[in-house]
Amino acid sequence: MSDAQGQSWPAIVARDLVKEYKTAGGVLSSARQRGPAAVDGVSLTVARGETFGLIGPDGAGKTTLTRVLLGLLARTAGESRVFGYDSMTEPYAIRERVGYIAQRFALPADMTVMENLRFFADVQGVGRADQRRRIPELLEFAGLTKFTKLLAGRLSGGMKKKLALACSLIHEPQLVLLDEPTLGIDPVSRREFWSLLGNLRAEKGLTIFVCTPYMDEAERCNRVGLLYNGRLVTCDTPAVIKQAAPGHLLEFTPSDFVPAQRLVAGLAGVLELQTYGMMLHAFVDDPLARRPQIEAALTAQGIFCIGIREIEPRMEEAFISLITREARKGI
């Protein structure tokens, strides 16, 4: 496939993509059984310039899907293309054009910041002249200028991720795939990381594909796909997804949690009940009518109901609602 042809393709296309891991045993076992599908018939498209968030709980299949897209894992069925290049047959064309940050810190820890940047630049075929320009730029951008001689393994969690981002950008890719880039780093570093991504998006028109379990990060994306048990439950803009929650949402803190939960779940007009810390989130058909009924039912059992109010459903509630429905379908 020629580059010109590649220009007309979206950044990422997946159609009915399936990935089943072979069950343990490795090359020594002759009988290869099929395990459950880690990615189970996913179809999605990521347009150029878009920031796409792949959201889902641990084990949903985010890492697997990302690796299949990059050709790091062999897909079982379906189609997957990056800039029109097939993940299975043209992986190197893809790898020259994208940057990737693995979920686990995966840069050589016993090389310095500078050595890491040089290595990835060399491997990606970035010339010396370009390196002299790009490396200081990226160091500045990632705030690592002072740490060039430090071993990568000695960096803090946030700085490691920034170094990984810098390394993944060294060859000026058109697309970066980030697998839980803010996992295990502090809130301040998280904000910094996202503001770096924001700059990239604004200045370079970079396409960003980001996996994350955090809902607040999902809200920063143009579009979001919700992955659950390997299936794409929904895929839309954050605004539309928020509408997916049923009815209206009442939030309150009961004085006795477990009995209150059991009681409210059974009340008429309560479509769905979610827990949120020590609070309960009840989705109801008619908030004005149902609110006094809930308060009355709880008081009858001697349970106080503190701070009951109607709130706007956020991504979090919408997702939980969607996942609960999806899980029920599965049973």
Binding site: L72, R95, E96, A102, A106, V123, A164
Partner: peptide
């Protein structure tokens, strides 16, 4: 084991 193989394989290195 340390996972660096993934970051290497995702480059154009054969």
């Amino acid at each position: 084991e340390v996972g660096t193989i993934e970051q290497l394989l995702v480059t154009p290195i054969r």
